[in-house]
Design a protein around this nucleic acid. Structure first.
Lengths: 338, 338
DNA sequence: ACCGCAGCTTGAGTCGATTCAAAACGATCT
DNA sequence: AGATCGTTTTGAATCGACTCAAGCTGCGGT
C-alpha cells in the first residue's frame, strides 16, 4: 500500500530531502547523529528507495539485458550464470529474455529493453545482420554480441564455430565415416552456419566424404528427433553412418530417434553434438560433443559491456574469440570394422 | 548517443509535448494531420519512449520479477516459459532472477525488484517462511509463491508435493523394494520437505519398509553424483535397492554414480526422479519421474498476479494446487526376483 | 568582537512523460 | 456579428530522487 518517499523520511527525521539523499548515497559526509536519525526514520517507515526515479535523474541504469535464443537450453542457462556472476560483483542486475529464435519476440524484447534504458544489451541474435542492433548502438544502448562474432560495429564474444565444426567433422572422418549428416537449425543463425561451414571444410579436405544436410527449423530435442526419424528412414545404402548436430539438444533428440528406430549408436550411427551441456554426458549413450567455455562467454560479455559503459569515448570495440574443444565419448567411439 | 525526448519531438512537429504524449497513448483523439506530423518527427529523430519516466509518472510498471532456485534446472526454464507466454499477452515483461538457493542472492534480487517497483514478484523461495516476503506484500508489491503453497498471506500455485512423494514411494514399494533412499536437498526448501513427508507417509503405511535419508545440501546433478557414491559405498546388505530423488537433476547425477560404481539400474538400484524434465527420458537409463505441469505453473502464477494487480481491493488470495502424476520408465521397471 | 574556514545542511531546479483544466479553434446556428 | 458547442491543442504541475550553489554553525585565531 503505502510506499514512502524520501520526502516523508525527511519530514520524520526533521531534515531536508537533500540530507536524506546524502545519507543514501554518501553517508560519510553526513554528521553521525543526523545519519542515525535518518536511518531510524527509514526503518520506521519501511522506506525503499525508488530506483525508477533515481534512474530517471542520474540517467544510468544498473541493469543489463541478456537476450538468448532459448532459456530451456542449458547452454544459455550457463552463459547466463556467468554473466550474472560478474554483473553481481558490479551491483548490476541481469534481466534474462528469451527470444525462442523468433525474430518478433526478439524485437519486442529489444524494444522493451531500450525503452527501459538498460545500461546495455547482451544478445545472441536470431539474425546478427539485423539493422535493429545497429540502431540500438547508434542511439546509445551498447550491444555485445554473445556467441557470435561481430564485424566491428560492436563488441562480441564468441567461440570459433568454424573450428568447432571442423574438429567435429574431422573426428568423424578419422573414425572412418564417409557419409555424414549435418543436423542444423535455422540458417539465419550464424552459429549454425559457421558450424556447418567448418564441417564442410573438413569434408572437402578429406577424400570421398559426403556431407548431407538434415537441418531442421528449430534447435530443440524435438527437432532432433524428427531429423533422426527422417535419416533413419533412408535406405541403408544411402543412410549416413554419422551425424554432427549443431547443438546437444538436437543430438539428444537424434539419439532418442535412433533408439526408437532400432539403430545402434555408435555402431549404426555415430553422433557428435555441440555445447557439451551437462546432460550430454548423462545421455543413454554418452554424447561426444564440442565444448565451449559457457560461463566464460557470459562473464566476458558483461566485462566488455561494463568496459564500454565506463569509458564510452575511448572505447574500441573488441571481438573476443575462444577456442572450442572436442570431448569424445561413447557416441562416436571407434567404429567396428565390418 | 543522442537519446531524444518527447520535447524534441514536439519542437520538430511544431506541437506541444502534451500532444506528442497523446499521440503516443491515445492517438485516436489527435487530429489525423497532427498525428502524422508527430509520427514523422518520431521517425526522423529515432525517438524511443523513456519507459522509466513514464513509469515514474504513472506509478505502474509493466514488468514482473520471477525468482527461481536454479536457472540451470530445466524445470524452472519451463516454468519461466509458461510465465512469459501469458505475460507477453499482457504486454508485460518477465525478468528472470536466479537465487541459486542462496538466501543472500535471493534477498538481493528481492531488494532490486522492489526498488525497481515491479508490478509484482513470482518466487520459488529458498525459505517460504522468510518475513521478507510478507514485508514486500505489506509495502505494496504483490507476491505469488510458485511451486510452494502459501498460508493465506499471498497467492500461490503449487503441485501437491506430498502426493508426489507418496506416489513415487508407493510405486517403489509396490515393485518390491524394502529399503529406499530419499535423496533430498536443503531442508529449508519446502518442496523437498513435502516430497520427503509424502514418501515417509507411504513408507509408514506399508509394512517393513525403511526410508533412509541421503540428502545433500544442493539440488544439482553434482550433488546427486555425490549422494550416489555415498550410497553405493554402503555394504550390500545395508544398501537400499531404490532411490527416490527430490528432483531430476539429483536423479541423473545419482544414475551416473551408479554406472560409475558398477551398479545396474534398475537391477541393483531402482531410481525415481521428480519434475520429469525432458532430459529424464533421454538418460542412460530412461528415468521414471513425477511429472508436474511446468508451463501451467508459470502461466497460472502470472494469471494470479495480474488478477491481484487489476483489482487490489476486492482481491482474495488464492492457493491453486495441481496434481502430479508418475511417469514410469525403465529406471524403476519391475524388479527381477532373485 | 570579528574574520575565516571547515563541516553540515538546505532547497530549488532537474530528469522525461503524463495529466488535465483551460484556451484556442472552427463550424453551425440565431 | 455574436453565441454555442464540440473538437483539438496547450502548458504548467507532477511523480521521486539527485545535485549543487548557497546558507548556516561553531570554533580557532587575532
Amino acid at each position: 500500500m503505502a510506499t514512502r518517499s524520501i520526502k516523508e523520511v525527511a519530514r520524520l527525521a526533521r531534515v531536508s530531502v537533500g540530507t536524506v539523499s546524502n545519507v543514501l548515497n554518501r553517508p560519510e559526509i553526513v554528521a553521525p547523529a543526523t545519519r542515525a536519525r535518518v536511518f531510524d526514520a527509514i526503518r520506521e517507515l519501511g522506506f525503499v528507495r525508488n530506483e525508477v526515479a533515481r534512474h530517471l535523474r542520474v540517467g544510468r541504469s544498473r541493469t543489463v539485458g541478456l537476450v538468448v535464443l532459448d532459456v530451456a537450453n542449458p547452454f544459455f542457462a550457463d552463459v547466463a550464470q556467468g554473466a550474472e556472476a560478474l554483473a553481481d560483483e558490479h551491483d548490476t542486475m541481469v534481466v534474462l529474455c528469451n527470444s525462442g529464435t523468433d525474430p518478433n519476440r526478439e524485437r519486442r524484447h529489444l524494444d522493451q529493453l531500450e525503452q527501459q534504458r538498460v545500461m546495455g544489451i547482451l544478445i545472441t541474435p536470431v539474425d546478427a545482420g539485423s539493422p535493429r542492433l545497429a540502431d540500438l548502438a547508434a542511439r546509445g544502448t551498447p550491444v555485445v554480441l554473445v556467441d557470435s562474432a561481430a564485424t566491428g560495429l560492436q563488441c562480441s564474444v564468441a567461440v570459433d564455430d568454424r573450428l568447432g565444426g571442423q574438429i567435429a567433422a574431422a573426428h568423424l572422418i578419422e573414425q572412418g565415416h564417409r557419409r555424414i549428416a549435418f543436423v542444423g537449425g535455422p540458417p539465419s543463425i550464424k552459429q549454425v552456419a559457421d558450424r556447418h561451414a567448418g564441417a564442410a571444410g573438413a569434408v572437402e579436405a578429406a577424400r570421398g566424404v559426403e556431407l548431407l544436410d538434415a537441418s531442421m527449423p528449430m534447435l530443440s530435442a524435438a527437432a532432433g528427433r524428427a531429423a533422426g526419424e527422417r535419416v533413419a528412414a533412408l535406405p541403408p545404402a544411402e543412410r549416413p553412418t554419422a551425424a554432427f548436430c549443431a547443438n546437444d539438444l538436437l543430438a539428444l533428440g537424434f539419439l532418442q530417434a535412433m533408439a526408437a528406430c532400432g539403430l545402434r549408436v555408435p555402431g549404426d550411427m555415430a553422433i557428435v553434438g555441440y555445447d557439451d551441456i551437462d546432460f550430454a554426458a548423462a545421455a543413454a549413450v554418452p554424447l561426444s560433443s564440442v565444448r565451449q567455455p559457457r560461463e566464460l562467454l557470459g562473464r566476458t560479455a558483461v566485462e566488455l559491456l561494463l568496459e564500454e559503459v565506463a569509458h564510452p569515448e575511448r572505447h574500441r570495440h573488441r571481438q573476443v574469440i575462444f577456442q572450442p574443444d572436442l570431448v569424445v565419448r561413447e557416441s562416436s567411439a571407434l567404429r567396428r570394422r565390418d
